[in-house]
């Protein structure tokens, strides 16, 4: 349990920095970097055996990526 928890926290911290201050400040980079803290959250949920929350989070992440990509598609890459 401990290893997953520590790994999850590390991935979360790295991901938050990557999303907050991306090297290449474009929408797509930020959107892709958003997957990193999400993966950290998944590892933390896994370490606490929160199976229902984990599965639902995966499903909702799919929908939210769809919503965000829809905005990006209409806005055009900047």
């Amino acid at each position: 349990m401990n290893a997953e928890f520590i790994l999850g926290l590390a991935v979360l911290a790295i991901g938050v920095l990557a999303v907050a201050f991306p090297r290449d400040r474009s929408y797509l980079t930020r959107l892709i970097n958003l997957e990193i803290p999400a993966f950290g959250l998944l590892l933390i949920m896994l370490s606490f055996d929160e199976m229902l929350a984990l599965l639902t989070f995966i499903a909702v992440t799919g929908i939210s990526t769809f919503v965000l990509v829809r905005i990006l598609e209409r806005r055009g890459p900047v």
Partner: peptide
Amino acid sequence: DLHRILLTDLAEILALVLIALVA
């Protein structure tokens, strides 16, 4: 604005982390 929307998603993930830590 669009960058702000993306960062809102990040804030949501972090709120979920705080809830997940209730464990």
